[in-house]
Amino acid sequence: MRKSRGKYWIWLFLAIGILMMTVPLQESIHKLRPATFGPKREGGWESAMRIGPTPAVIAALGGFRTVAADLLWLRAERAWDGGSWWAIVPLLDTVTQLDPHFILAWKVYGWHCAYNLNVESETLVDKRYWLQRGLNVLEKAVEANPDRWEMYFELGWTYYDRAHEPYRASEWFYKADQFPDAPSYVTRFYYRPFERIMDFDALFPRMEYAKKKHLDDPQHQYLVKRDIEWWTTHKDDPQEHRRQIVTENTARKQRALPFYLYPNDPYWDVCPVCGIPSPKGSETCQYCGAPLHPRSGSAAASPGRTN
């Protein structure tokens, strides 16, 4: 009996000894593995309204989160084909929670909110809500995938093309460009936003930066050189200024965004009501007839007036 008990004690100590050895190993593995849960979600009323899996459901799915995300992605595709654009949102929200590293799902989710649902919305408040939601989604995508240049670029692109915020767009393009695997067009997008608003103080240094990168890419070098030559020639061209201002403000008008003021433009005064430029010195807008220099403070149009 004593011998038998002694044997048990030896095996117990052996088991404890080996299990002790696994503790620091497990700590190390825990640190090395990527987090599989999604980034922090909205708090307050928005999280209460959000439709999607609770953390308990996500945890219960265990290693099958990716498969569950795939099945919901297929459902989202079917909803897309059926034209159910609003039904896709909770599906994509759930997919990105289940699999926060599903790059394509983040891209589609952000794009769908900022583009499709922004256009589909009927009121200005709704349009702005969906644009902002698209930007929020992509910011979460960056948070969840900080090592993927695609997410930084996607966010920069949405700020550039949809929100028309050139300075923020350029910042995100710059962050995307810091990744060694980012293609050369990302570098060129670092200066593209400043072409639209003709901020030459910001544009030329960035074009010089782009010229020094991708030296072994002749296509990139050709395009950057072409852009530098174009803007060196046309930076004082009144017609080019007018073209840029009209293009930018027309796009802003279509997206229910405030027009861009171009405060330092030497040739044109931008109408505070319609956003279309008239020659410098004009009293009234040549397009809508509104006074170009109203006396009562800032003429920054309210959102309703721009539409």
Partner: peptide, 15 residues
């Protein structure tokens, strides 16, 4: 972590 790993190795080795 290292101390526990070393202690574990010693215990197992001794047994």
């Amino acid at each position: 972590g290292r101390l526990i790993l070393i202690a574990g190795v010693i215990v197992v080795g001794a047994i």
